[in-house]
Design a protein around this nucleic acid. Structure first.
Lengths: 204, 204
DNA sequence: AAACGATTTGACCAAACGGTCAAACTGACG
DNA sequence: CGTCAGTTTGACCGTTTGGTCAAATCGTTT
């Protein structure tokens, strides 16, 4: 009997589906969708290929499941901005959270980056609906704060883009950053640099 | 007779090699190395597959040729920083040049991004030798300027990373940026935003 | 127009790919 | 211990892929 989209029930299913997603994250994030092979994912997960395809109907399905699970966690920090909080501190806290995610979830960042660079064929709709809405709301909040003179006036959308860009850069371009820095750990100085940057940019 | 690595001599070779590289840039930058097929590149270049492989010995060779040609143009703006110039204006001009490159050469940016995200397997050596040296020199120059109090003191390497990150974001994540912005053109507000950002960050 | 290198192509190949299937195995429960 | 749903696998299939090759065509020079 096939599993379809039903939630995993048994202990074995839970374990194997988790192992597959973990393996797929590793492989997809380093080789891209077409660069990854089902055999590779299966062997990384400690399963045979037919066995893997017993849990997920196709390579596509694994990738989709991965992206779906990712999108939520990825946008959580944005949702966590508190409209009642102190504006500058809220933004700085958001930057800090995003940077921590780049450090602790670099593979997720790279998976997302590769998908978007390739034109986001599988998540374009989510970007222009859910993501856009969330960003627009946050941008409106930022504009309120700017209108009240509590942070300096800059283009709110581009402010958000800059935070995504600067924080995810440390995950996506990790190899380049490390190649240039030599022995120095990127994440040693990054938090202070970004705090300085956004403090100077946004202090009224 | 095969062509080996010799420079193209005839008119036809010049034209076809150029067409192949142009087509390969288009295909590689949207599908990644393994996602691109030789047939795809050939048809995009208006050639048959065997004919394409008459000009380049392998898919790998096309990709390498592209990256090699790219690396120079990519780093030119960094080399163009004038040690004798006015510090803040030099940095702002560098930001402007990099942003213009993201706008006029987005495919090159994406090709480079995908290579680095996947661990830079083909250019890792160049990154940790040539690139590192160039960046270290620029960082030293920036530190001089900071020591002289002509720009504010921040981590020079991370300053350079931030410029790469912020400018290339508009090319690499173009789809996402446009999805969020709706009808608004990203490159309308980006230059002013980045100028404000770096002016506030670096004004002593 | 003859001759010769440069260019182009259809046919082909071996390997790798995503996916299928019937058959075998496993383990929890009555 | 028998049973049966749940799990695993070896063998297999059709397609796609990067690449080869001999033969055909083209273009230029004499």
């Amino acid at each position: 009997m096939t599993l379809a989209k039903a939630r995993p029930r048994t202990r074995i299913q839970k374990k194997n589906r988790a192992a597959i997603l973990e393996a797929a994250l590793e492989v997809f994030s380093t080789h891209g969708f077409r660069g990854a092979t089902v055999d590779q994912i299966a062997s990384e997960a400690g399963l045979s290929k037919p066995n893997l395809l017993y849990y997920f109907p196709s390579k596509e399905a694994i990738h989709s499941a991965l992206l779906e699970r990712l999108l939520d966690t990825w946008l959580d920090p944005l949702r966590a901005i508190d409209p009642q909080g102190e504006p500058l501190e809220e933004v700085l806290a958001y930057v800090r959270r995003k940077l921590e995610m780049s450090q602790s979830l670099p593979r997720e960042s790279r998976l997302f980056a590769m998908e978007v660079i390739q034109g986001a064929p599988r998540i374009h709709d989510v970007l222009s609906s859910d993501l856009k809405q969330l960003v627009d709301e946050t941008a409106a909040l930022l504009e309120d704060w700017m209108a009240q003179g509590r942070i300096a006036r800059v283009h709110p959308h581009h402010l958000i883009f800059s935070i995504w860009s600067l924080t995810q850069h440390y995950a996506d371009f990790d190899v380049q950053v490390r190649a240039v820095l030599g022995r120095e750990d990127p994440f040693a100085a990054a938090p202070a640099f970004l705090e300085t940057l956004y403090r100077r940019l946004l202090t009224p």
